Computed example of a mutant assay.
Amino acid sequence: MPTHYRIVLCTCPDPDTATGLARRLVEARLAACVNVVPGLTSVYAWQGRIETDHEVLLLAKTRADRFEALADYLRRHHPYELPEIVAVPIEQGDSPYLQWIDSWLDAS
């Protein structure tokens, strides 16, 4: 199975921000689907301190050839100074689902 498909993870500060970004990523054909997962508690190092925040996770399904454009979009529109933008290769997936990703991303 080819690994040119990706899941991109991005945390957001609240459901409205997450849903808005998710919708715009799909509308722009940078992702075929974005799951909005609420209820996340993040513990992270930031500016020399350990912080704890409630966040919402985005899981965007896309291809490697769309990653840079997707990341650029998130950097420009995300409210965080340094948003989490991490891509994980999809090593295996159901062929019809992966073809559906292609059909959305390649449609004009």
Rank of each mutant, 00 (worst) to 15 (best):
107 A>L: 08
51 E>A: 14
32 A>C: 07
2 P>A: 08
22 A>K: 07
89 P>C: 07
59 L>W: 02
82 L>W: 06
105 L>C: 13
16 D>Y: 08
54 H>V: 06
21 L>P: 04
44 Y>R: 04
55 E>P: 10
21 L>I: 01
95 S>F: 00
62 T>W: 00
47 Q>V: 13
61 K>V: 15
29 R>E: 00
9 L>K: 08
3 T>G: 14
79 P>K: 00
92 Q>V: 08
18 A>E: 02
97 Y>F: 01
61 K>S: 12
23 R>W: 03
86 V>N: 03
61 K>G: 12
40 L>N: 14
6 R>P: 09
28 A>K: 15
26 V>S: 10
20 G>K: 00
100 W>S: 05
95 S>V: 03
46 W>F: 10
58 L>H: 02
39 G>A: 02
13 P>W: 11
54 H>F: 03
24 R>A: 06
86 V>T: 02
58 L>E: 03
63 R>W: 09
27 E>T: 09
18 A>K: 03
72 D>H: 03
72 D>Y: 06
80 Y>M: 14
65 D>C: 09
14 D>I: 15
63 R>I: 13
82 L>I: 09
97 Y>G: 00
56 V>H: 14
93 G>V: 03
83 P>M: 13
96 P>Q: 10
96 P>S: 11
69 A>V: 13
25 L>E: 07
57 L>Q: 07
37 V>D: 12
26 V>T: 12
16 D>M: 06
91 E>P: 07
71 A>S: 02
93 G>Q: 02
19 T>E: 07
7 I>L: 04
59 L>E: 04
50 I>Q: 12
37 V>E: 06
102 D>W: 15
43 V>R: 03
74 L>Q: 01
85 I>E: 04
64 A>H: 06
46 W>R: 14
83 P>K: 10
9 L>P: 11
65 D>I: 07
8 V>W: 13
20 G>I: 00
106 D>R: 13
64 A>E: 06
94 D>M: 08
29 R>Q: 01
50 I>H: 13
2 P>C: 12
103 S>P: 05
89 P>V: 13
6 R>F: 05
24 R>S: 12
35 N>T: 10
76 R>D: 02
71 A>Q: 04
56 V>I: 11
29 R>T: 01
36 V>Q: 05
98 L>H: 11
85 I>N: 06
60 A>E: 12
53 D>W: 05
6 R>I: 06
9 L>E: 11
23 R>T: 11
76 R>V: 04
3 T>V: 13
26 V>A: 10
30 L>S: 04
70 L>H: 07
60 A>N: 15
